[in-house]
């Protein structure tokens, strides 16, 4: 019998969590509030916390294509670039991750478990060490400064982990279900579409969310590869924006809030699957 957890313990833990959350989130929240203030209010002393006269001026300025700043940073363009790259690489990763994950979970071949584990290890080698070689590689392929190139790059980076998540969850779907479907008259493809994929939805959503968020917020590779202003993504935009408009915190706040929005939406709607899917992968595989 488990002793009932003591309420004091939980209260203490919650307070501790709240303090940490406040500490982490406060600057972000302040920036979010700042996006609704005027430049004047931001410059005046004493500092205000809540906007005195809330305005969406900073947001409209971002989308004002006639303004001088939009010559340098075209936000609609940045956003659509980021969407294009994130969504299409997510689709690529899902399609290939599902096919590869299915093979890993259903076909017995030598070295299977080793390779599957290796997929996870490959995640450790990402980052700065790969910047230069990647840059050279993309240049040689003529894929620098190209949205297609960035999409392919993100797909390549995202595929191993997505495959691993999907394979781990497919392994838990008994093969007998597919055999039963085959006896019922299903082809291998119909088995996959009608039996396997519906049962793997949490894992697919998890993999998709994981990848989308990663691609959307990726900065380092985008910043070295994407040179022309037409091909930049939101994270590059945000970085240069901070350099260009340091004083105008309302605009920086507006841009940052916009960029964070899709990620928050993804987590808000996918949260349920996210935790479940990760747990499913965590126990076995």
């Amino acid at each position: 019998m488990n002793p009932q957890p003591r309420p004091l313990y939980w209260i203490g833990l919650s307070i501790f969590g709240l303090v940490i959350a406040t500490y982490v989130l406060f600057p972000i929240f302040w920036l979010f509030l700042a996006s609704f203030k005027t430049t004047g209010e931001l410059a005046s002393l004493p500092l205000t916390f809540w906007p005195v006269a809330p305005t969406i001026e900073a947001y409209t300025a971002l989308f004002d294509t006639t303004s001088q700043s939009s010559q340098i940073l075209n936000w609609p363009r940045l956003i659509s670039n980021s969407f294009l790259v994130s969504v299409s690489s997510t689709l690529i990763v899902l399609v290939f991750g599902t096919l590869a994950g299915y093979a890993f979970s259903r076909i017995q071949f030598p070295g299977r478990d080793l390779i599957l584990g290796g997929l996870l290890i490959s995640r450790m080698f990402q980052g700065a060490a790969l910047l230069l070689p990647t840059y050279r590689l993309m240049n040689n392929l003529g894929l620098q400064d190209s949205l297609l190139g960035l999409t392919l790059l993100y797909s390549a980076f995202g595929l191993p982990f997505a495959t691993w998540i999907i394979a781990s969850s497919l392994r838990e779907i008994p093969f007998e279900l597919e055999e039963s479907a085959m006896m019922d008259g299903a082809s291998r493809l119909q088995c996959m579409v009608k039996i396997v994929l519906p049962l793997a939805t949490p894992a697919l959503i998890t993999a998709a969310m994981w990848h989308f968020v990663g691609a959307w917020s990726e900065f380092a590779f985008a910043s070295i590869l994407m040179e022309s202003s037409d091909s930049k993504t939101v994270t590059i935009g945000l970085a240069s924006f901070v350099e260009l408009f340091t004083i105008e915190f309302n605009r920086v706040g507006a841009a940052a809030s916009l960029v964070a929005m899709p990620i928050m939406l993804v987590f808000f709607f996918g949260q349920r699957y996210f935790t479940r899917g990760l747990l499913a992968g965590a126990v076995k595989g």
Binding site: E176, L177, D184, L199
Partner: peptide
């Protein structure tokens, strides 16, 4: 037609 030991019903 085959009936499996663990029934193999489609859970969804």
């Amino acid at each position: 037609a085959m009936v499996f030991q663990n029934y193999a019903l489609y859970p969804h």
